[in-house]
């Protein structure tokens, strides 16, 4: 049990920055109670950060959005940073991403602002230590669940963050991600969408537009969902009786501008949907900055399933 594992204070928060959240895989088995899933918005980078730090699947990491965070190590730590390049430095020297490095006692790890992508993942060997709430430490501020204090609070200047004392050998021998696995989030991505039941209710013109437009990511984008700006999509159904919404669901409210729903979305909703993004495309979208352009491509589940299983196969037992 995690509660019995040895833990120690390891990191001091020098500056808390705009948004840094503790995230494990997420909160599952409670969505029927209206509790959202939480977890890393970019599962891909989160998984790599943990793996490279030598942690097993599911270990809690810090999701750092935009930058601004400054942390000081209180002892030597093995860490890995993956995901967005937020201009991170260790005592002023650029930090290599997508590989295991040593963060020495007293060194300051500082995140600046986005160079590529939006969310960086910091994994510490052993994993951040916090008491799970409803089975998870995933932080959801709106629901006052998870995080270091259990109540979904943001980090504050001066906080001291505990980690579990690493035991035994690192899970992964690999300490550096291969080149092909490192993402450059500046490229405009093509997001894979599995069509859903209401797709036939959109007009022909709107379906053409949906898949042949460079959609612009709106600044109304957060861990609940990302709004896309472009041609107005028209659906013969304006609203549905509320029903469960899965990760990556792309709903279209009456204003015709799609919203892709991410980890902290409400559990039920009533707008018609084009379908759902693949899990890895939802992760990719979570790295897009406002103003960036994305395209949607309709895919069948076969190839998408193969890719997702290949990805998980690297990390999950």
């Amino acid at each position: 049990m995690t509660a019995q594992r040895k833990m120690e204070s390891a990191i001091r928060v020098h500056r808390s920055g705009p948004l840094a959240l503790l995230q494990d895989r997420g909160r599952f088995g409670v969505r029927h109670l209206g509790v959202t899933q939480g977890g890393p918005a970019d599962l891909y980078s989160w998984a790599w950060a943990n793996y490279l730090a030598g942690n097993p699947w599911g270990t809690a990491s810090l999701e750092i959005t935009f930058g601004g965070l400054q942390l000081v190590a209180e002892r030597d730590l093995d860490i890995a940073l993956a995901g967005a390049d937020l201009g991170a430095t260790l005592d002023g020297q650029p930090v290599p991403l997508w590989q295991r490095i040593t963060w020495k006692e007293g060194q300051k790890l500082a995140f600046a602002s986005p160079v590529s992508g939006l969310r960086a993942y910091l994994s510490v060997r052993g994993g951040f230590a916090a008491e799970p709430v409803m089975g998870s430490v995933a932080t959801v501020g709106r629901e006052q669940l998870g995080g270091f204090d259990g109540w979904g609070s943001k980090l504050a200047d001066g906080d001291r963050l505990a980690i579990y004392t690493p035991e035994g050998k690192a899970v992964a021998g690999m300490t550096k991600a291969p080149d092909h696995a490192r993402k450059d989030f500046r490229e405009s991505p093509v997001l894979e969408l599995l069509p859903g039941a209401q797709i036939g209710e959109f007009t022909g013109r709107s379906l053409y537009d949906a898949f042949n437009t460079w959609w612009r990511v709106d600044d109304r984008a957060d861990r609940m969902g990302v709004r896309l700006l472009g041609p107005k999509l028209q659906c013969r159904i304006r609203s549905l009786i509320s029903e469960g919404i899965n990760l990556g669901g792309v709903q279209v409210p009456p204003d015709g501008q799609p919203i892709a729903l991410l980890n902290d979305r409400q559990t039920i909703g009533g707008y018609p949907r084009l379908g759902a993004l693949s899990p890895l495309s939802a992760s990719r979208l979570a790295q897009c900055l406002p103003g960036q352009e994305v395209r949607l491509r309709a895919r069948g589940s076969g190839p998408v399933l193969d890719e997702y299983r290949d990805f998980l196969g690297n990390f999950r037992p």
Binding site: F28, V30, H32, Q37, I241, E243, G244, N246, S301, L312
Partner: peptide, 23 residues
């Protein structure tokens, strides 16, 4: 099984796609 979300007229069934394919 990962999650079940019952609602007025529907049940959303979320499963682990490693253990089960969609079909």
């Amino acid at each position: 099984l990962v999650d079940l979300v019952p609602s007025y007229t529907t049940l959303l069934v979320v499963f682990d796609p490693v253990r089960l394919s969609p079909s």
